[in-house]
Amino acid sequence: MDSEASGNCWHCNQPLQALDYRRESTCPACNRHTHVCKNCRFYTPGRHNDCLEPIAEQVTEKERANFCDYFEPADREAATTTAASAEALLDAAEDLFK
């Protein structure tokens, strides 16, 4: 990873640099661990282990630093844009039936 911004904190949305995702690193703004399931692009509540990676070891504490080798920072901006688009489509569909 390079030192450019590569994601945001799962808790406070503070922009993070690549070096902020080391095993014991914490967010400079809220001091929460950053190498955690909730900050990973594979984190998907409701899936087995809440993870899209099928062979990742189970991590029970989703907000604590872990040793997962599959960790990749989540792109929260893209996820927010996708959620906003989905909500806009739902609103448009509901308007059709008013």
Rank of each mutant, 00 (worst) to 15 (best):
Thr80Met: 11
Lys98Glu: 10
Asn39Asp: 11
Asp91Gly: 00
Phe42Met: 02
Arg32Cys: 13
Glu87Val: 05
Leu52Trp: 01
Leu90Asn: 11
Pro15Ala: 01
Asn66Phe: 05
Leu89Pro: 00
Ser85Cys: 02
Asp95Asn: 06
Glu61Arg: 08
Asp91Leu: 08
Asp2His: 07
Glu57Gln: 10
Leu16Tyr: 12
Phe97Gly: 00
Glu63Trp: 03
Thr81Ala: 15
Thr44Met: 06
Ala74Ile: 04
Met1Pro: 01
Asn49Leu: 05
Pro54Asp: 03
Asn31Pro: 00
Met1Val: 07
Cys27Asn: 04
Asn8Met: 04
Gln14Thr: 15
Leu19Ile: 11
Gln14Val: 01
Asn39Tyr: 08
Phe71Asn: 01
Cys30Gln: 10
Asp91Ala: 12
Gly7Val: 11
Asn31Glu: 13
Asp75Ile: 08
Arg22Val: 03
Thr60Cys: 01
Pro28Ser: 12
Pro45His: 03
Lys98Pro: 00
Pro28Arg: 13
Cys40Met: 08
Thr44Lys: 13
Arg41Glu: 10
Gly46Glu: 06
Cys27Thr: 14
Leu96Pro: 00
Ala56Pro: 01
Gly7Cys: 10
Asp75Met: 08
Lys38Ser: 09
Glu77Gly: 00
Cys27His: 09
Ala18Lys: 12
Glu53Gln: 10
Leu96His: 06
Ser25Cys: 07
Leu96Arg: 14
Ala83Leu: 14
Ala74Glu: 15
Asp2Asn: 11
Trp10Arg: 02
Glu61Gln: 12
Lys62Asp: 11
Val59Ala: 01
Val36Gln: 09
Leu52Ala: 08
Ala88Val: 02
Glu77Lys: 13
Pro15Thr: 02
Asp69Lys: 14
Ile55Thr: 14
Arg64Val: 02
Phe71Ile: 04
Asn39Gly: 15
His48Leu: 09
Asp50Thr: 05
Glu94Pro: 00
Ser6Phe: 03
Met1Lys: 07
Thr34Asn: 03
Leu96Thr: 08
Ala79Asp: 14
Asn39Met: 04
Glu53Val: 13
Leu19Pro: 00
Arg22Ile: 08
Cys37Asp: 13
Pro73Asn: 08
Pro15Ile: 02
Thr26Cys: 12
His48Pro: 00
Ser6Leu: 07
Ser25Val: 04
Asp20Cys: 12
Tyr21Arg: 07
Ala74Phe: 03
Arg22Trp: 10
Thr82Leu: 13
Gln17Lys: 14
Ala86Asn: 13
